[in-house]
């Protein structure tokens, strides 16, 4: 993750700190952040680690002078209820947001809210996509699942429209898609949620596609 961040970041790096996997108490790391006094902190701490980090970051009073930047995994709809107010103002990047303006996404979000009473997370969108991808591929081979080669080709071609916007599968099986910058703030209904700010990477393949031998 850090290598990917450094690939596109052109500014100065004050310091790098690597906590252990599963570490939950960030007092030492936060003291180092306070001493370095950077303009912003980029962190990748998925799940419970990120929840604890954001809460302790706010409790230490660092939110006033330092902006938090992270990936969508640490700032999505499943994290926001666990953290609450300290989430406001966190910038994060991901390949999808519930307010993306395309027909498929609007249908998906409306149906999800009606069924579950809340906004969908990125994981929900990915699950929805996976089911639709399989559905499109099965329709393509007209139900003849024994022909695995044809099924594989149909999956690669992905003949459905994605909720993420422009979406293609690359020769190595990874997607070519847009990446969006989002910020956590209150929406018109007063809910704390992500708002898409801009598209930071358009039709972006993964960094190692050139090294893959698949055609």
């Amino acid at each position: 993750m850090i290598a990917g961040f450094k690939r596109f970041y052109t500014g100065g790096i004050a310091d790098e700190v690597y906590p252990r996997l599963g570490q939950l108490d960030y007092s030492a790391e936060l003291a180092q952040i306070r001493a370095a006094a950077p303009d912003a902190v980029f962190f990748f701490l998925p799940g419970g680690m990120g929840i604890n980090f954001i809460k302790q970051f706010a409790a230490a009073g660092l939110g006033k002078q330092t902006t938090l930047i992270t990936t969508a995994f640490s700032a999505d709809e499943d994290i926001i209820p666990a953290v609450g107010e300290p989430m406001l103002g966190i910038y994060n990047t991901g390949f999808w947001n519930h307010d993306l303006d395309n027909a498929e996404n609007r249908t998906f979000v409306a149906a999800f809210e009606k069924d579950y009473g809340r906004l969908p997370s990125g994981f929900a969108a990915q699950g929805y996509e996976a089911a639709r991808a399989i559905d499109a591929a099965v329709r393509e081979v007209k139900g003849k699942l024994d022909d695995t080669e044809a099924l594989r080709r149909a999956l690669r071609a992905n003949a459905y429209k994605s909720v993420r916007g422009p979406f293609k599968i690359n020769h190595n099986g990874f997607p070519i898609q847009n990446y969006y910058l989002r910020v956590v703030e209150r929406d018109a209904k007063g809910r704390i949620t992500n708002r898409t700010l801009s598209t930071v990477l358009k039709d972006h393949p993964d960094a190692y596609a050139g090294e893959c031998s698949l055609k």
Binding site: S27, K55, Q56, A58, A59, A60, G61, L62
Partner: peptide
């Protein structure tokens, strides 16, 4: 207790800790 306390000028420490 979820906010910081100013122990010294410019130095904040979590109230809970």
């Amino acid at each position: 207790l979820s906010g910081p306390v100013e122990l010294l000028p410019g130095f904040h420490y979590p109230a809970f800790r």
